[in-house]
C-alpha cells in the first residue's frame, strides 16, 4: 500500500529526511515514532503529494506520488498536524464541501456515515470555530475517512487533546485499522505501542529501528534499568555505583534514589549492593524496572546522538 524507497527531502541546505526506506501493507497500522523535528511531517507531506521529494520514490495505493499525484490524492485520507478547518463553516457544510471535492457519488450518505463514525451527530450544525479541540480533531478525522480511502495518513492525531479524548481517538484509530492501511505519527511511545502493528522509529531524518512493538522490546532488552534507594548520607554513592562493572549510567533522582542503566543480560544487582555496602552506604531498596518501548526509544536516539555529543534522554516526556 505504501512503498518508500530512498526518500530524501532538502529544505534549502537542510536535509529534513535522509534516504528513508519503508513499506506498509494492506490493513496494517504503522506507527511513525520520533521526537520533534525528526522528519515525520515532512515524510507524510510527501506521501500525501503535498510536496515532492528531493530524491527517491514513494508509491502510495499503487501510484507514484509525483507522477500520478491526483490518483494518490484520490485514494488517501489525510489529517495534517495542524488540523486545517474553516472556522466560519458548519461541520456539515465543511464535510459537504470536502465530499464535493472528492466527487463522491453518494456524498450525503458518506457524510452521514463519517459523522456517525466520529460521533458528531449532535454538532453538525455548529460552527467549527466554536468547537473544542477534541471535537475539531474529530471533524478532521471525519474529513479524512469521508471517502473510505485505501490509505489513511494521520499526523500526530492525539496531540493537544485531554486524556479522555486521547483514549477515545486511539480507540477509533485502532478501529480504522480494520478497513484502512494507517500510517500515523506520534512522539509518544506508549501510543505507538498501544495502536500499531509495526513501529518505525525515526530520528533526525533516519529510520533507526523498525519492528513490531513486542519484537523491538525483545531485541533491545538490554536497555535495562534498576532503581536503588539508599538511606542516610549518599555522599560518594554515585561514583561507587558507576565503578561497578556493567553499569552504563547513573542518575541521582534525589531523596537517595538512583536510576541505573546496566548492560544486557547480566545480573549485577548483587555486585552493586556489595560495592555500596563496602562503601558504608545503607541500601533500602533495589528495584528492577521492566523494559518498555520508552527505554528502547531513548536508547536508540541516544546512541544516535552520542557521535554529536548531545544528550536527549530527558527530552522525551509524554
Amino acid at each position: 500500500m505504501i512503498q518508500v524507497t530512498n526518500l530524501t527531502k532538502w529544505y534549502g541546505l537542510r536535509k529534513a529526511i535522509d534516504g528513508l526506506n519503508f513499506h506498509a501493507k494492506k490493513g496494517e497500522i504503522v506507527g511513525f515514532l520520533g521526537p520533534n523535528g525528526a522528519g515525520k511531517t515532512t515524510t507524510m507531506r510527501i506521501l500525501t503529494a503535498y510536496m515532492p521529494p528531493s530524491e527517491g520514490r514513494a508509491i502510495v495505493a499503487g501510484y507514484d506520488v509525483v507522477e500520478e499525484s491526483l490518483e494518490v490524492r484520490r485514494r488517501v485520507g489525510y489529517l495534517p498536524e495542524t488540523v486545517p478547518l474553516y472556522a466560519d463553516m458548519t461541520v456539515l457544510d465543511y464535510l459537504d464541501f470536502m465530499a464535493a471535492m472528492r466527487h463522491l457519488p453518494n456524498a450525503d450518505q458518506c457524510v452521514d456515515e463519517a459523522i456517525q463514525r466520529v460521533n458528531l451527530e449532535d454538532r453538525v450544525e455548529s460552527y467549527i470555530g466554536n468547537l473544542s479541540k477534541g471535537m475539531r480533531q474529530r471533524v478532521g478525522l471525519a474529513q479524512a475517512v469521508l471517502h473510505k480511502p485505501e490509505v489513511l495518513i494521520l499526523d500526530e492525531p492525539t496531540i493537544g487533546l485531554d486524556p479522555a479524548q486521547v483514549v477515545e481517538i486511539r480507540a477509533f484509530i485502532r478501529e480504522l485499522g480494520a478497513d484502512h492501511t494507517v500510517l500515523l505519527s506520534t512522539h509518544i511511545l506508549s501510543e505507538a505501542q498501544q495502536i500499531c502493528n509495526r513501529v518505525l522509529i525515526i530520528n533526525k531524518g533516519h529510520i533507526v529501528a523498525e519492528d513490531r512493538p513486542e519484537n523491538l522490546q525483545a531485541r533491545l532488552a538490554g536497555a535495562e534499568r534498576i532503581t536503588i534507594e539508599l538511606a542516610g548520607d549518599t555522599e560518594g554513592a554515585e561514583t561507587t555505583i558507576a565503578g561497578v562493572k556493567g553499569v552504563l549510567t547513573v542518575e541521582p533522582m534525589g531523596n537517595g534514589v538512583f536510576e541505573i542503566e546496566i548492560t544486557p543480560g547480566k545480573e549485577i544487582r548483587p555486585a552493586i549492593v556489595r560495592a555500596l555496602t563496602r562503601a558504608g552506604q545503607d541500601v533500602v531498596e533495589v528495584h528492577s524496572q521492566g523494559v518498555d518501548l520508552e527505554q528502547i526509544f531513548l536508547e536508540l536516539t541516544r546512541s544516535d546522538d552520542k557521535s554529536k555529543g548531545k544528550r536527549t534522554s530527558r527530552q522525551q516526556k509524554e
Binding site: 486545517p84 470536502m98 471535492m101
Partner: peptide, 14 residues
C-alpha cells in the same frame, strides 16, 4: 496562513 491550503493541495484538485 491557517494551514487549510494543505487540505486543498492534498485533495484531488489541480
Amino acid at each position: 496562513g491557517q494551514g487549510t491550503l494543505e487540505l486543498l493541495l492534498t485533495a484531488p484538485v489541480r
